[in-house]
Simulated scan of single mutants.
Amino acid sequence: MTVIAFRVQPLTPERWPDLEDLFGPKGPCYGCWCNHFRMPQKQRMPLLGEGARRLFEERVRKGPPPGVLAYDGETCVGWLQAGPRAHVPEWNNPRRASTPLPDAPAEDERNWAASCFFVRKGWRGKGVTAALLDGAIAFARESGARLLEAAPMDHEFKRSSEGLYVGPERVFLRAGFIEVARQKPGRPLMRLAI
């Protein structure tokens, strides 16, 4: 089996064209453009497609980088939204598997979330998700985060390709994350102290 060494970089404004190429003209997840956890559904739904793309591009241009990109050579093959929990308020909703615990409040910008993965078709199952997570850990460390949390699908949860945008539990376990809560079936809240 050939192992591919992926390069992972923060999504800065000059890398925006790479993200657009990765996501395609309609954007991932029915035109969400990674706004799912950034605003309530009532605000997000009318923006799907071009409105969501413009909003996320503005967010990237304003900074700081909202996550990391993975590259195979010059081709952008993956994305992971990672940054302070405060930047993804819907991820902190009390009805979610990712609801923050009292020892890691969302208001503390040192408490980070790894919330959404996207891997280019043709590169899925080749280690891009693990490379993105490793890159997000390094990015969080360099940015002064104290912890990184995620709410992946566990190994027993019935998966669909749409549901795996949160990542599989095994990738987080291999990276050293531990389960700190289980607020929804099949979705552990996992944490890595940085």
Rank of each mutant, 00 (worst) to 15 (best):
D21F: 10
S98M: 04
G49H: 01
L69H: 09
P13H: 06
W112H: 04
G73Q: 10
D103G: 12
H87Q: 11
N92R: 14
E57G: 00
T99W: 08
L48K: 11
Y71C: 02
A113T: 05
T75F: 03
Q9V: 15
W79K: 01
R61G: 00
R53C: 02
G83A: 07
E57T: 05
N92I: 06
E109N: 09
A52D: 04
E57W: 07
M45S: 08
L47W: 00
G73N: 00
R110M: 11
R54G: 05
N93W: 01
R95T: 12
A5D: 15
P40T: 02
K26L: 14
T99V: 13
M45R: 09
W16C: 10
A97S: 12
A104T: 05
A104Q: 07
Y71T: 02
R15Q: 14
G83Q: 01
C34F: 08
K62P: 00
K26P: 05
P17A: 13
D21H: 14
G51N: 03
Q9K: 15
M45L: 11
Q43Y: 06
R53K: 09
G27A: 06
L47G: 05
V77I: 06
A104N: 08
C29L: 15
R7S: 15
L80M: 10
F37H: 06
G73S: 09
P105D: 12
D103Q: 14
G27I: 09
G24A: 12
I4L: 14
P100R: 04
Y71N: 04
P66L: 03
P105E: 13
N35E: 13
L11T: 01
F56R: 00
G27D: 02
M45Y: 13
G63T: 04
G27Q: 03
Q43L: 10
P89Y: 07
G24W: 11
P105M: 11
R53P: 00
D103A: 14
M39T: 04
Y30T: 11
T99E: 08
W112L: 04
G31R: 11
L69E: 00
R96K: 09
H87R: 09
E20G: 02
A82F: 09
P25T: 13
V77G: 12
P28Y: 14
Y30W: 14
R44M: 07
W33E: 02
G27M: 10
N35Q: 14
A86V: 12
K62H: 02
Q41L: 09
E74V: 08
Q43P: 01
P40C: 05
G31K: 13
R95K: 14
D21E: 14
A106E: 12
R85D: 03
V77S: 05
T75N: 04
E109T: 13
Q41V: 00
W91C: 01
T12W: 06
P65V: 08
G67R: 04
P66S: 02
